[in-house]
């Protein structure tokens, strides 16, 4: 009973994780500008990583693989933002201005 519940939960986690990976990939292609594409990349890097790895950890159960999976997940989650920051900051330093407005500058949203 418990086993099949765990099974279903882990499948659901992994399926949603796969869906988020796909959405992130689509976003990286569809979004209009460099700084907005950062958000699509961070979608696959955080949400999808958490979902897929927790699904696999449920599958692995109490084996040596679980701490390994957890270690890889934590490592990816710690370095993901660092890499994002490094890329974004390098672009900013090179003089690429984000096509974004400040919060007070306009009242209507859409800045495209």
């Amino acid at each position: 009973m418990i086993d099949s519940v765990l099974e279903i939960v882990s499948w659901v986690l992994m399926a949603t994780g796969g869906a988020f990976v796909l959405i992130g990939g689509i976003g990286a292609l569809r979004l209009p500008e460099f700084y907005t594409r950062l958000h699509a990349a961070s979608l696959t890097e955080t949400m999808a990583t958490i979902l897929i790895f927790s699904g696999m950890m449920l599958q692995a159960g109490l084996t040596l693989a679980t701490p390994k999976l957890a270690a890889i997940m934590v490592f990816l989650l710690l370095t993901g933002p660092v890499a994002s920051y490094a890329v974004a900051n390098a672009a900013l330093q090179s003089g690429m201005r984000p096509g974004a407005r400040g919060l007070e500058e306009n009242d209507e949203g859409d800045a495209r």
């Binding site: 460099f34 990349a41 890097e45 897929i52 993901g80 890499a83 890329v87 672009a91």
Partner: peptide, 16 residues
């Protein structure tokens, strides 16, 4: 920088 971002994404997806 778009290219670097895409390559970074490619790399993390490889680990996954």
């Amino acid at each position: 920088y778009d290219r670097v971002l895409a390559v970074n994404m490619f790399g993390t997806k490889t680990a996954l």
